[in-house]
């Protein structure tokens, strides 16, 4: 009866059973499983919200439900990292590490869909069930087989809502950097900065993290800090035009015209798909230099 996907679970190096303690349960009202699941995840991550407070951020009245992208966006609007979880292995690993996961299931069938969000908080591999804060039931035990079938119907859509100091155990560099970029979109510069720093602690050579840290410092008005991190980055990545371009901009805004010019000319020499942007920076440097 069990799928191959479930058979492999014994070998992923997690305890046989685990349940995250003390996760606040919000029983859902009609159609409000999205707000309920999201607010439980956010409260766990340290954001004090209630289903009623997040509902206006995720609920779509005509659909009588919440779109996945709205949950992702709302997570960011509360300064948390929205990181996708898309396999049963990853789900179990995150749970074993103490990270609850919002999941979307189709409890019905493809032709009679009953879409439902809940918060996964634990599992038992020996007895073969997952533990969900779901609907009106706290700590609901659902057989792994049924869970896997209902989750598969949403293409295994799962979401972590993490504080930016906390890395998903299953994190991949590119996906994690994209998740932090999401925090930039909601202008949570301090949280995004923390997220990029967290990324660097795991991947010390993450070019994306270096660029992100520079950009967050810049948005926070910390030009010197931005310059410092970008200078570090030029040592690690001497042939990366984006770093040189952004460094040139930091230098320009501190009226260090000659150094800015030197940096942007190096970027232009390297060329690449963003050359037109380097040219623009060069023009700006030259025009401002002339007015001095």
């Amino acid at each position: 009866m069990k799928s191959a996907r479930l058979h492999g679970l014994a070998d992923i190096g997690v305890p046989n059973q685990f349940e995250i303690d003390d996760i606040l349960f919000f029983p859902q009202k009609a159609y409000q499983c999205g707000p309920a699941a999201l607010s439980m995840g956010l409260v766990w991550s340290g954001v004090q919200v209630k289903p009623e407070t997040v509902a206006p951020e995720v609920f779509t009245p005509s659909l009588k439900g919440s779109l996945q992208t709205a949950l992702i966006g709302a997570t960011r609007r509360h300064g948390r990292i929205a990181y996708p979880i898309t396999t049963i292995d990853a789900l179990i690993k995150e749970l074993a590490y103490g990270h609850p996961v919002i999941i979307l299931q189709n409890l019905g069938l493809s032709w009679i869909p009953v879409w439902h969000y809940s918060l996964a908080i634990g599992y038992d591999l020996a007895e073969s069930f997952v533990i969900l804060h779901s609907g009106r039931t706290a700590r609901k035990h659902l057989s792994l087989v049924t869970f896997e079938r209902t989750w598969a119907r949403s293409d295994y859509w799962g979401l972590l809502t993490l504080p930016p100091s906390e890395l998903p155990v299953t994190a991949k560099e590119s996906e994690y950097i994209s998740a932090v970029i999401g925090l930039e979109k909601t202008h949570h510069w301090n949280e995004a900065l923390k997220g990029y720093q967290t990324a660097l602690s795991r991947w010390p050579n993450s070019l994306g993290a270096y660029i992100g840290i520079g950009n967050c410092h810049y948005e926070l008005g910390q030009l010197e800090a931005a310059e410092a991190i970008l200078r570090d980055a030029t040592n690690l990545f001497p042939n990366e035009g984006v770093i040189l371009n952004n460094l040139a901009q930091m230098l320009l805004e501190q009226n260090k015209y000659n150094e800015a010019l030197e940096s942007i000319l190096k970027a232009i020499q390297l060329g690449g798909p963003l050359s037109h942007l380097y040219q623009k920076t060069l023009k700006e440097i030259l025009s401002l230099k002339d007015t001095q």
Binding site: Q28, Y31, S178, G182
Partner: peptide
């Protein structure tokens, strides 16, 4: 609150996206 990549994907899919609503559907 979405990245460019997410918005472009969403624009393509928005008509058939599932919206979780749980009880009552």
């Amino acid at each position: 609150s979405l990245t460019d990549a997410e918005v472009i994907r969403l624009a393509k899919e928005i008509k058939q996206l599932p919206a979780g609503s749980g009880l009552g559907t």
